[in-house]
Design a protein around this nucleic acid. Structure first.
Lengths: 179, 179
DNA sequence: GCTAATCCATACGCAACCGTATGGAGGCCG
DNA sequence: CGGCCTCCATACGGTTGCGTATGGATTAGC
């Protein structure tokens, strides 16, 4: 493809390729030699940048976890009132294919990966709890008293992403209207 | 475990073991030799009952698809009014870990499998559409006019299953209350 | 009780992948 | 130019799983 100037690769290049492969082909695509083929190189590069496959996979989720969370907070407009920030956040989650990594559906693939990788499951669980905390704060600030509301908003966002629903924004708006 | 009378296996035994392995360990557990170890036998039995692995996997989804749909309809009480059937169906989906195959979380694993198996993705898409049709009929019969309502109910159920949320029933009730 | 069909165990060749070892290509600095 | 450091290509042994082949064990029919 694009191997004009002999493109030397960095560790982050490998990690980004991993996110792409994960989103496009699922967790089974996270293999050294398959990724090397995608990058037009060999696994010699892989094993220079990473000790082994578990090391690479651990760095993948260590790179994802803080970024996926800070991206959410960074997308919030601090000038808006809590209710506005809540709606902005929910509609963003329901509309975007994903918040980072180039619009690919990363999170469903991550949940798929979690089924066979306990540490990934733990990272996802942490992420879910932190996000629900954010939603809880925004709900409280918006005067939404139902304690199930944050979980409903989050579960709906997860479902919309899993279904890859084109009408995700409309669906999310329906729930927000009832709160 | 229980190999007292030399338990001859049927094709359905292998398929049920496949559903268990899929739900408990994800799609990567769907391998002939691993399943054979689970069943306390060898792959000689596997390749007698099935031509090869694709044949087995195809029969897995061919067994799942009609059953997972008819189980939903069978759970509906025909004596209830549409609104009652709608709530019964949604609360069942939100509360049960799964509708069949022994209370294991099969559907999230199936969505995970769909990421790397296009035919599974198609079967899931068909299932999603048929279920949303059922929800649409029930919503119309209940006087719910918002066209996004069926998709919201379904996406919420999918999200609750993916999150394995203990408060799924409460969450679903919140959405139903707003319709 | 003999035969035939059904079902499973074992052994084999094959392919994919992992991780390592080793050498080579290219830049940077003296 | 010479030496060093970074990064990658290649080759190898080991493991795991697939699919086949073949024989043994169990059951059913007659």
């Amino acid at each position: 493809m694009t191997q004009n100037p002999r493109p030397r690769l960095s560790a982050e290049d490998w990690l980004m390729a991993g996110f792409r492969a994960l989103a496009n082909h699922g967790p089974s695509a996270l293999r050294a030699e398959a990724l090397a083929r995608d990058l037009g190189t060999t696994k010699g590069s892989f094993y220079w940048h990473f000790k082994d496959l578990p090391d690479y996979l651990a760095k993948l989720i260590m790179l994802w976890e803080p970024r996926a969370f800070s991206d959410i907070l960074a997308s919030l407009d601090p000038d808006l009132p809590p209710r506005g920030r809540l709606e902005q956040l929910c509609l963003l989650a329901a509309g975007c294919r994903d918040l980072s990594y180039g619009g690919i559906a990363l999170e469903p693939a991550l949940r798929a990966w979690a089924l066979s990788a306990p540490d990934v499951a733990e990272a996802l669980k942490r992420m879910d709890m932190r996000r629900i905390e954010v939603l809880t704060d925004l709900c409280i600030g918006s005067g939404i008293t139902d304690p199930a509301a944050p979980r409903a908003l989050y579960a709906l966002a997860v479902g919309i992403e899993a279904l890859d629903d084109d009408a995700g924004t409309e669906v999310m708006r329906l729930l927000l209207r009832g709160l």
